[in-house]
């Protein structure tokens, strides 16, 4: 199963992704980045049925910080993101 992954070290919190695909992306303050706005993904959503919207968000990210990642239940690292 694949899911969108946001590299929040690069993300600038501009909200283009959340406006393009609000079901998956949400921009909010990130305590691990000095309360800067960053994009977070909703990993509980099955993204395959709306893959077109997710891809549109990936393509429209101004700093190209979103990508697809393979996801499995025990992939704790990805889950944390």
């Amino acid at each position: 199963m694949r899911k969108a992954f946001v590299d929040r070290d690069i993300c600038i919190g501009c909200s283009v992704c959340s406006e393009t695909c609000p079901a998956v992306f949400q921009v909010k303050e990130d305590p691990t980045h000095g309360q800067d706005f960053k994009s977070f993904t909703n990993d509980s959503v099955d993204q395959e049925p709306i893959a077109g919207q997710v891809q549109a968000a990936i393509d429209s990210c101004p700093v190209q910080c979103i990508s697809w990642k393979e996801y499995c239940e025990d992939d704790s690292d990805l889950k944390k993101r």
Binding site: I12, V16, P62
Partner: peptide, 20 residues
């Protein structure tokens, strides 16, 4: 070049200019 934000008062706020 480009601005990712969409402020309504700014000519650079248009979606067409969002990519950096």
């Amino acid at each position: 070049r480009g601005c990712p934000f969409s402020c309504a008062f700014c000519a650079d706020g248009l979606l067409s200019k969002s990519m950096i």
